[in-house]
Amino acid sequence: MKTNGNEQKIDVIISVDAGGTSTRYSVMDQNRNVVYTVDGGSGSPAVNANAESDIINMLEEVYDKVIDEFNVKAIVIGMSGFALVDHDSYVAQLKDKFNTEIEFISDAYLALLSILQDKYENGLVVVSGTGAVINALNKGKLFRTNGWGQLLTERGSAYTTVRDFVRQMIHNNEQKGYFSPLEQKFMKHLNYNKLEDFKKLFYFNPKYVAASHARFFIEEADKGDEEAIAWLRYNGQLLGQDAVSALKRVSMDSEFAAGFRGGFISNAPYVVEGLVDTLKKSGYTPIIVKGDSDPVFGGYYLAKRKQYI
């Protein structure tokens, strides 16, 4: 690997958004310009057992491509499954290899920083895709709710929206012996004839397969199905309840910046509606901001806050 000499070079940082499906590596200068970017495979240790070494290997490739022209002032890594890694050991390994400042954070915090940018000091991010996690930041205090994996939490995610609907179907059928109109539509959507067919969906497929069927509820809601609309709003309310818990833990003021990330919530306005309504009923006035569309820019704003660039 080439050395990080800094003579007459432009200062940059490398920001890494390591997700469960893919990982983005972006090199950015002091003015937020992306001078190089590349995507790799899963960077989450919850999905990829080799995530830590895979990230280092890809970082070496990125580093070597830019070091002749740029001075790498810091590397910021936002990782899904962050809590599964020995933080101190991994940071020490990265510092030893790249001889630069290292910031190792969760992907949810990276997403929050991409929303706050350099315009807001405090705020909230609700991430809801296949899974779900919520981060609140106030006066330097960061708190997370949800995000413990689908076996423990993640309500309001695409996966639990599907799973809990099926649980409701099972309960209704066992207790009352019927399926609601939307439940019947869902069975037809999956080409299932009996409840036992759902075992195939949940026990013989990875998490994302069940989660992909959350699209069914969005499509039915778009057609005006009141049951689908109510179900999406309900799942938004669950996210809102967890968001309120996070806000209380950081003693957030009533008004704050808030943004949403993830393929499910970004395409489900009724989920957002239920979430925001829950926040307002709890006495909060969120300022909804879009921030940067790509969470990888959160690394740039963290580097600015730390005065690396």
Rank of each mutant, 00 (worst) to 15 (best):
E174N: 15
K304R: 15
P206S: 08
L94Y: 00
Y63H: 14
F70Q: 09
E154A: 14
L112G: 07
G147H: 07
Y192R: 05
D164F: 08
G131D: 01
V38M: 12
K223A: 14
D225F: 01
N6G: 09
F82S: 10
K73A: 07
N172A: 10
L201I: 03
Y109A: 01
G262R: 08
N267H: 15
Q150E: 10
F70I: 06
S180R: 15
Y25T: 00
Y192E: 02
K223H: 13
F264G: 04
E226V: 05
D294T: 03
I265W: 04
Q241C: 12
A46S: 14
N205W: 09
L110K: 01
Y192A: 08
A18W: 00
G263Q: 12
M79R: 13
D96C: 15
V34E: 07
T145E: 13
N6F: 07
T100K: 13
Q93A: 12
S15W: 00
M79Y: 04
Y25R: 05
F186M: 06
Y63G: 03
L110D: 00
N99Q: 15
K188Y: 06
A268D: 02
E273W: 03
A132T: 07
H171L: 12
E69D: 14
A18Y: 02
S89L: 12
I115E: 02
D86E: 13
N71I: 01
N50I: 03
D39G: 14
K207Y: 06
R144C: 04
T153L: 09
S22T: 14
G298V: 04
V296G: 05
T130I: 06
R163A: 09
Y270E: 15
V126T: 03
D253H: 11
N173G: 05
A211N: 08
D164N: 15
A243F: 04
D277W: 06
L110S: 00
G240H: 10
S106W: 02
E61K: 15
V35A: 04
V276W: 08
M28Y: 05
G298Q: 11
N33H: 15
H213K: 12
G291A: 04
K280S: 06
Y90E: 02
K280F: 09
E174I: 07
D54N: 06
T130Y: 04
L152A: 04
A74D: 03
M169Y: 11
G156N: 08
I13V: 15
A92C: 06
G224D: 08
V271Y: 05
D118G: 11
S53T: 12
K200P: 02
P295Q: 09
E60Q: 11
V126R: 05
G129Y: 04
Q307S: 12
A258C: 11
K65R: 15
Y208G: 05
K185N: 12
G262I: 06
S293K: 15
P45D: 00
G156V: 07
W231M: 09
Y301C: 03
P269K: 14
S251W: 05
L190F: 09
A210D: 00
Y36L: 10
E227Y: 01
L94S: 01
A132H: 06
G177R: 13
T145Y: 07
E255Y: 07
